[in-house]
Design a binder for these strands. Sequence first.
DNA 1: CTAATTCG
DNA 2: CGAATTAG
Length: 61
Amino acid sequence: MPCSTSVKVKDPTTHLEIVATPEKVFVIRNRGKEIKIGLFTSPKTGLKFRALLPPTYPCQE
DNA sequence: CTAATTCG
DNA sequence: CGAATTAG
């Protein structure tokens, strides 16, 4: 449980908009650009997918 | 293309 | 090992 902030993302599998917490959050900084990626799981298929989180996702602690 | 990470 | 994810 790295974060407990709910994020509203769209499931590419169901095309449904869900509000959930990312199971894992990685910050990818490439060439000085940092983007946050959240790993979610589709509640229907159980398929895991990644989505872009806001640059300042409330998950410092 | 490159970065980080996880799942299949 | 490859896919996927975003940005420039």
